[in-house]
Amino acid sequence: MFETMVKSRYFEDTMVKAYGEGKSPVFNIGAGPVPGEMHLSTGQEPAAVGICAHLKKEDTVTAPHRPHHHAIAKGVDLKKMTAEMFGKITGLGKGKGGHMHLFDPDVKFSCGGIVAAGIPHAVGAALAAKKKGKDWVAVAFIGEGAANAGAFHESLNLAAVWKLPLIVVVEDNSYGISVAKLASTAVESNAKRAAAYGIPGHHVRDNDPLEMYRVSEEAVRRARNGEGPSLIEIETYRYLGHFQGDPELYRDQDEVPQLRELDPILKVRELLLADGIANEAEIANLEAKAKKEVDEAYAFARESADPAPEAALEDVFHKTAFNSKG
């Protein structure tokens, strides 16, 4: 879990620099090697590693528009993922999807930019697993704002009725874009909403990866044993803006520095040392290994070829491809 969090953090820190290339002194969203919007997950690593540590390749994960930590924790091909974000032909989607549309069927991972849209997909995957008689689990990661969407309630209700192996993880980073949770949500914790569907609800405080691991273990066990869905909400931190280029006028300037003092990666590092699980040299090796993998992924992306212009007409629906009998 520590190594995965380090890898995720270093990946995002590296993307901050890569994304910023060519976008100053005046911010231009279309400029540089990584054009388009960019939503980074720096600080939210515990939500992903805590539950993905219990998952296997056959389990499904759906993620929202801030998906990199989920993808890394699930084991998505890092080189292909990075190339996709650079718009390269070697990317997961041949460079056509960008960072909000990462699909890796080899590890059953997908994400999308529509708020709450991944939950029904996860319900479908959970239903498929049940019908096939498999012990596969489906996990849907969402932001706390998505818990106010209709898809959240409809999906949980159906999953509870059919006792599907679904786990919904709500990442409460305090803001839906620029709107504070207190101004948008009627309950203090979305975990309380689980009671409406007769399923367990867990609330993880203080961005704690070990507590997230503990409650996730129980949720995954229930799902694999056919006992139905669970809902987990974790209080997590978004160190960066909603998107890169966000002026962040909606929050106090002291908020992020105070949150960084509680950084979960530093906490786990201290715990590993204090409990004698690892020494400084072993931790340094883990950090070096994670950073090497990230550096190689970025080098692969930069060195990969751009798609040919005519590739824009491939992998899309063509009405003329169907005849009158089609």
Rank of each mutant, 00 (worst) to 15 (best):
R193P: 09
A219S: 14
G87Y: 04
E280V: 01
A308Y: 11
V107M: 14
G150S: 14
V16P: 02
D306R: 12
G241A: 12
E21Y: 01
P46D: 14
S304G: 15
N173Q: 05
P309T: 01
V169F: 00
S41R: 03
M1G: 14
K291P: 10
A180H: 15
N225L: 15
K17P: 01
G133M: 09
E255P: 07
H121N: 12
F243I: 13
S216Q: 08
H70E: 05
L210W: 02
K17N: 05
H70P: 00
H68L: 03
A125Y: 09
H99N: 15
K325G: 05
A147G: 13
M15Y: 03
V294Y: 00
A71V: 07
M5G: 03
M15I: 05
K134W: 11
E303Y: 03
T82D: 05
E303N: 13
F141W: 12
G36S: 07
Y175P: 02
K23W: 05
L210K: 02
A126E: 04
A288C: 08
G113T: 06
G30C: 04
D208Q: 01
Y197H: 11
P209H: 02
A71D: 04
P229G: 00
A160W: 03
S24I: 04
M100P: 01
L166T: 00
E188R: 10
Q258S: 13
A159V: 07
D315V: 07
V256P: 01
I114F: 01
L266H: 06
A53Y: 14
L164V: 00
Y19T: 15
G112F: 04
F103I: 13
L40G: 08
L266V: 03
D306G: 10
P64M: 11
R238L: 13
R9F: 11
G32M: 09
P200N: 00
E296C: 09
V204E: 02
S41N: 07
P64Y: 11
F152C: 05
T14H: 06
A116M: 03
G143P: 10
R193K: 13
K130G: 09
I29V: 14
F11V: 14
A126C: 07
Y197D: 12
A117P: 03
A194D: 06
E12D: 12
I114V: 09
I114E: 03
P257S: 08
D104Y: 13
T60A: 12
H101F: 11
T60L: 05
L249A: 11
C52E: 13
S189E: 12
L262R: 14
N225I: 08
K181T: 15
R302V: 15
L182R: 11
E233W: 14
H99Q: 15
P120L: 08
S155I: 04
E248D: 13
D13M: 08
R224F: 10
K96M: 12
R193D: 09
G326T: 10
G112K: 04
E296R: 09
P257I: 06
P247R: 02
K80S: 05
I72T: 02
P309G: 04
K96C: 07
V6C: 08
A71R: 04
Y175W: 12
V49A: 09
G124R: 03
A180G: 15
Q258L: 14
A194F: 00
T320K: 13
V61E: 12
I283H: 00
Y239P: 11
P257R: 05
T62R: 05
A63R: 04
K56F: 03
G32R: 07
N28T: 06
A183R: 09
D135E: 13
L231M: 11
